[in-house]
Write a protein that binds this DNA or RNA. Structure first.
Lengths: 347, 347
DNA sequence: TTGAAAGCGCTAACAG
DNA sequence: CTGTTAGCGCTTTCAA
């Protein structure tokens, strides 16, 4: 029974070997079900291991084998229900394949993202799942990691500067469809509240929105497109934007919100300003909240397949990790979002 | 430039030592700012390390030092906003102290909890933060880990069978206060919908509820106390319970819900059943959702200090990890919950 | 101030 | 089938 520096009483192979008067090699072989070991010692070793509560030291195994069975995750915020669902999907696969997850949050700060990355890779990861911040413009550090051979899979917020797998939502189409629903509802003055789009998502959603307008002969007035630098985290910013919209000569009759935090922020501010939804203004927004149906009014949402996305991303990553030869073909998987039509859209 | 089994191009101390024609010991000393090294080689080594993008191998460091800088977390579900907030609090402290987190979910299954624990400790953790499932009755495995010397801190759902730090909400008082608010509102027939309470939380909340009733001369009819085995995950179960309540001769005029998932489930089912809140029945519930104020009607909640709890739990754990001598006095920290009175309570 | 060498726990090539 | 040995990358005596 060894006692390590931390005072933790740990049983090692050495202990078992000594107890049974055999070599650590034999213990190792018995425990890993190696073929070159007799049934007899195998049973003996296993019994002893069980009795002493032996657990392999993962650090030693990792050092030896060169893989840690650890997957790093970098994402903007776990408070966003979409990302929570992604994490669940990742967990689902990772668990099956016996990987552990180290989760870090960038809180939409590129500096923090970088810091997380540095800390994480220092931890000897087997692979990385990442969704970029809305601030991120420079992915040199990721490139370097990727170039060194770290398997990376992007999800939701991706960079095209790095040749690797991507799993995203069909942003263009879902924004297009959502806008179409507003148009169908008879709206022509439709505002879009979004984030600055260094990352493609918001740009694509904007395009989908614009395309739907154009296709229906609606003049896409630039005044109806508003940007929130903090992406809905800062309620005042959202309030400013809404007040600007309603101060227009022709205020919008409907709003498409581009992200979870923007959607709920818009909803909240409209309440505070005593605007009636959908009477004064209709609302549909990208959001994965599970409470959409019990909001007042129930909220129409563009729901991204977070769980599915997490599963796929993790699966792609683990396949890449466990494949020996380097990947050459990289997949860009585009998942469909689901649109839920609820009362916030009715006229 | 070494190439390990995974094909990852990694720079090791050996590489730097070879490049500079010195020993790995010197490289190690230079990098760790050891005093027994000349300024000259220190600078030389650092420059080389930077140039080659050297990153220490954490597995090797851990194997050597006996600590992994890894903290394990086991909790019921990250989809519960309360736990999400706890994780954020934990992150906040862990980041500062340079620890990484491995998060696992038990999904209220004791079997899964146990599995997670086994996988986690196999990973050589420095410490463990855990919130038990509502199923958990037997904590022998945790006892064993604790006995072996693994620092453990319980949060929210604790076991008193293990002598270690605990951080919890004042369950008794918060349920008592919430019930008092209902009584103040003129209610006397107050139902309590809760989970089976192997874990103390629900038992304490029930006591607080009962105490408030008794103190106000209200007969605590057992019929008003309902249990949901799945704790709100299963909507049908909640529906059954509500229908039973409303089928009573004297149906309740108010409900106190004991957990986040029960609260939102009750809210949802009441909507579906076309019961008006608070007209037909008033509602207050334990919940940390950030959308409580925009629900219909806005929801009165007992809000647990999740972020704070995470910070404190993590701080206690890291202190315990980094203290050399074993802890002897264990703290039981009881945090106050906040009660938000909103429209779901008005008469 | 530096280097040689041992060892953390484990695995695997090699020899017997 | 089993033991000996070397080594993963790093830190830390011990000697020089």
């Amino acid at each position: 029974m060894g006692i390590n520096q931390k005072g933790l009483n740990t049983v090692t192979m050495k202990d078992i070997a000594r107890e049974l008067g055999i070599s650590t090699a034999s213990v190792s072989r018995a425990l890993s079900d190696n073929y070159q070991i007799s049934e007899k010692t195998k049973i003996l070793v296993r019994k002893a291991a069980k009795k002493r509560g032996y657990r392999p030291n993962r650090m030693a195994q990792s050092l030896k084998s060169g893989n840690s069975k650890l997957i790093g995750i970098v994402l903007p915020s776990i408070e966003n229900p979409f990302f929570t669902q992604v994490i669940n999907g990742i967990h689902f696969i990772a668990n099956k394949k016996q990987y552990d997850l180290i989760i870090t949050q960038s809180h939409e700060s590129h500096a923090l993202e970088l810091l997380n990355l540095k800390n994480l890779t220092y931890s000897s990861l087997d692979g990385l799942l990442i969704s970029l911040t809305s601030e991120t413009e420079n992915v040199d550090y990721l490139k370097e990691l990727h170039h060194k051979g770290l398997p990376i899979v992007f999800f939701d917020r991706v960079s095209n500067e790095i040749e690797t797998h991507q799993v995203i939502t069909d942003n263009f189409k879902s924004a297009y469809d959502a806008t179409l629903q507003l148009i169908k509802g008879g709206h022509t003055r439709i505002a879009h509240i979004t984030s600055p789009h260094n990352v493609s998502n918001y740009a694509e959603r904007l395009l989908g929105y614009q395309y739907a307008l154009a296709e229906n002969g609606i003049d896409g007035d630039k005044q109806y497109i508003k940007y929130c630098r903090q992406g809905g985290k800062d309620l005042r910013e959202v309030e400013t934007v809404l007040l600007e919209l309603f101060a227009l000569q022709q205020p919008p009759g409907a709003i498409l919100a581009a992200s979870d935090s923007i959607t709920t922020a818009v909803f909240r501010i409209l309440h505070q300003l005593k605007y009636h939804i959908p009477g004064d203004v209709a609302l549909i927004g990208f959001s994965n909240t599970e409470l959409a149906d019990i909001l007042n009014p129930s909220l129409s949402t563009v729901f991204q397949p977070g769980f599915e996305m997490g599963k796929i991303a993790c699966d792609l990553l683990i396949n890449q990790i466990e494949r020996n030869r380097p990947e050459k073909e990289f997949k860009k998987l585009i998942l469909a979002a689901e649109i839920f039509l609820r009362d916030s859209l009715k006229r």
